[in-house]
Nucleic acid binder design. Structure first.
Length: 729
RNA sequence: GGGCCAUUGGCGCAGUUGGCUAGCGCGCCUCGUUGACAUCGAGGAGGUCACAGGUUCAAGUCCUGUAUGGCCCA
């Protein structure tokens, strides 16, 4: 095989065939398909090539072991890896503090990825043959052994060898060989790779003398290693180097360790692990950060990972263009669930017309479904972002680039609009505000059920939001605020107070408090619109006009620096919540009936209501609320009310509302029969459950009792419906 | 080959330790709207929770297997 040595691989392959033929060893030559990896950039086959590379001995306990011991105790999987039992860098047994057991993953399943990877870690090749990156700060000089002109290092090397004996490991005696470079602060190593060669390596650390040393090295014929560091090696230093390390800077002191690192799961091994290893190694066991939040990944509408190189990604600027920055941020927050992937179906915006459309797709290399490079609509052409990203097409005046968009962001856009309009309404309808009063409690005002209810809801929303943020449950955070602002505040509270607001100080106070707190809570997800509304609110409502007992809202010029609201226990009002829910159910049932009867919303209907004593009282007291919301005129409420002739019956548990003079026998029959079927189904469900002896015997008593109550209620309603039907004939 | 995740109405997603009649946004249907908002309001239809077994009084939720898709590692 000797003739092959030194040949280029292509040539060597030909020569091998010739050699086999020459020795009469060739059986057959035939084509076949094979799977050889190709470079994704240059598309040439990838060939093995043996070279010297630089490695970091990450398998050492000072790196691997420290990383494993960083993992919080509760997130460690059972393991027989000795690293968990080894001493820490400071020589102590592993325990709380100094970074040990201080690292926590959210969602916690990712701790497994981290542990698993470290337990199977191999030494890390950090040299790369690329143009871009940090050049390896090592200078090397080679001598042929025959010349015997290696100076200091060589004699020390021989000395060391004679003392410790010769052997494979002695070819890399590194630290043991001091020389002039070591004396000036460098690290040096020598190597004796084969019988003819002697090499000396000098690593130059950053220092004031760095320039001078490098100059001297060059003068003496040392050459810098042409390789650069693996990008993840450089990145591993990020928590330190960005803060001024290796100097002891105030920034390093304050921000290392920091609280949380937020990243994608594919980065856990590449980056998170390396930062943990390096930080602990260089900073006496300190962690770079305490929490690691792994967020979901956005896939395209076809379930493919979005990728810059594939060209199926979405430029955030496109979304900002179509929906706005707040809408984008809100929607992305809402998409940040604890799961692994979320899909984002992507559409395109026609640059000629501004219309949104679903593009034509093609299959690109690798089987990836992407928008065709050129899209055509109404005889006009445009270039897709894939067309540009892939380099297949260029945008021109006739064929401009089309932006991407996605209707998923409509929710955020609508929400921003809703918020804006709620404030617009408030500013227009608030009326004159009375004397400022920093000390305001509902107990001293004539607050209504609705006031107490919305403040209860606000308090609960703050709790939900705080919990969600503490747990990195960002979707829950966004959802809680959406529900509070839109569903509770706009749909119900504002609808209830809109007629009386301008002359009711307690309502003004409650509304303003809700608006102020909403802005504070929403600011992190919708910074722009909330800051703008904050300024407007500041012009309209003095700061000592906001807040109530249990919710202190400190003044602030800018929302971004305003205090986060803290809900006191006194905001909570369980009875208000319960009563309001009851009224809400009644209102919805009446609206439902109005719809079934096709009663125009503007047409006021007279109504009488039958309900048990306390509920009657509640309904009577809140007629200011139910009346307008159902557009009904109350004509009496009490425990003993007969159905007026010609009225429709609305059953809501123990409450019955009669809508006068709307009855159409056929409609009412159809409606009640549907209701009857519903109730029958319910009764059957509960009956089935209760007739199961095992359920009655084994289920917790309170659940069985609950089922009994439900059954009794359902039967009662069933009978009522039957009675109503009988009355209709 | 190993590991992790997902599969819930047309689409995108919630559903905490197994326990009210499985929710939300978009879309769809009906009705409405001259003063916060058509980027709106009220109401409605639509789901045997991928499939097959199992555990349990009780399974979307726990266990086993299968299928499909996604990601990481080798």
């Amino acid at each position: 095989m000797k003739p092959l040595v030194g040949l280029a691989r292509e040539e060597a392959r030909k020569q091998i065939v010739i050699w086999f033929k020459g020795h009469d060893l060739m059986g057959e030559v035939k084509p076949y398909r094979h799977a050889v990896g190709h470079s994704y950039r240059s598309h040439v086959p990838i060939e093995p090539y043996y070279t010297d590379q630089w490695y970091v001995k990450v398998t050492d306990d000072k790196l691997k072991g420290e990383a494993l011991r960083a993992l919080s105790e509760s997130q460690r999987q059972a393991s027989d890896d000795s690293s968990f039992n080894a001493k820490t860098l400071s020589g102590q047994d592993a325990k709380e503090g100094n970074g040990d057991a201080g690292l926590e993953f959210t969602p916690d399943r990712y701790a497994k990825t981290f542990q698993n990877w470290h337990e199977n870690i191999r030494d890390w090749c950090i040299s790369r043959q690329l143009w871009w990156g940090h050049r390896i700060p090592v200078w090397v000089k080679r001598w042929a052994v025959e010349t015997k002109e290696f100076g200091d290092s060589w004699s020390k090397f021989l000395e060391f060898q004679s003392e410790h004996g010769a052997g494979q490991d002695l070819q890399r005696v590194a630290e043991h060989v001091g020389n002039q470079w070591v004396d000036s602060g460098c690290t040096a190593a020598v190597r004796y790779p084969d019988a003819k060669t002697f090499e000396e390596y000098v690593c130059v650390p950053p220092s004031d003398d760095e320039e001078a040393i490098i100059q001297k090295l060059s003068q003496e014929g040392y050459i810098q290693d042409p390789d650069v560091l693996d990008t993840w090696f450089s990145s591993a230093l990020w928590p330190m180097s960005t803060m001024g390390w290796p100097d002891d800077t105030p920034e390093l002191e304050k921000w290392n360790p920091t609280s949380v690192l937020c990243t994608a799961r594919e980065i856990i091994t590449l980056w998170v692990s390396r930062m943990v290893m390096f930080n602990r190694y260089f900073k006496g066991g300190d962690l770079p950060f305490k929490d690691v939040f792994i967020h979901a990944m956005i896939q395209d509408g076809h379930g493919q990972k979005m990728s810059k190189s594939l060209g199926n990604g979405v430029d955030p600027m496109d979304i900002i263009h179509s929906h706005g920055a707040d809408a984008m941020r809100y929607t992305l927050t809402k998409m940040t669930t604890q799961t692994q992937d979320v899909r984002l179906p992507v559409d395109m915006v026609d640059p000629h017309t501004g219309e949104t459309f679903t593009p034509d797709y093609v299959t690109a290399s690798g089987g990836v479904k992407v928008a065709a490079p050129i899209q055509e609509r109404g005889g006009k052409k445009m270039v897709s972002s894939y067309g540009i990203a892939s380099g297949k097409e260029k945008a021109t005046d006739e064929m401009p680039a089309a932006r991407n968009t996605s209707e998923k962001f409509d929710e955020g856009q609508k929400f921003a609009n809703k918020l804006w309009n709620a404030f617009r309404f408030a500013f227009a309808s608030l009326g004159e505000l009375g004397e400022p009063n920093a000390d305001f409690g509902l107990e001293q005002s004539n607050a209504t059920l609705a006031d107490r209810w919305i403040l209860d809801r606000l308090g609960k929303t703050i709790d939900t939001v705080d919990k969600a943020l503490a747990n990195y449950a960002f979707a829950d955070y966004a959802t809680a605020l959406y529900d509070f602002v839109w569903r509770d505040l706009c749909d119900w509270y504002i609808e209830i107070v809109k007629r009386s607001l301008s002359e009711t100080p307690s309502q003004q106070r409650v509304l303003v408090t809700c608006l102020d707190a909403s802005l504070r809570l929403l600011h992190p997800v919708m910074p722009f619109i909330t800051e703008r509304l904050w300024a407007a609110l500041g012009e309209r409502v003095p700061s000592d006009w906001r807040g109530v007992h249990g919710l202190n809202l400190e003044a602030s010029d800018m929302l971004i620096t305003a205090a986060w609201p803290k809900a006191g226990a006194s905001l909570s009002d369980e009875s208000a919540e319960e009563n309001f829910e009851k009224l809400r159910t009644i209102v919805e049932a009446v609206r439902n009936a109005r719809n079934a009867y096709k009663i125009p919303p503007k047409q006021q209907v007279e109504a009488t209501t039958q309900a048990p004593g306390p509920v009657s009282q509640l309904i009577f007291e809140t007629r200011y609320l139910t009346g307008p919301l159902t557009n009904c005129k109350g004509c009496g409420v009490g425990p003993h009310i007969d159905r007026p002739a010609g009225s429709a019956t609305v059953l809501i548990g123990d409450v019955t509302v009669y809508l006068h003079d709307v009855v159409d026998v056929e409609t009412e029959k159809a409606r009640l029969e549907k209701l009857l079927a519903d109730k029958q189904k319910q009764v059957k469900t509960f009956e089935g459950r209760l007739s199961n002896k095992k359920y009655v015997d084994n289920a917790p008593a309170h659940l069985v009792q609950e089922t009994r109550d439900q059954q009794a209620a359902a039967i009662k309603e069933l009978e009522q419906v039957q009675q109503q039907l009988a009355e209709l004939g």
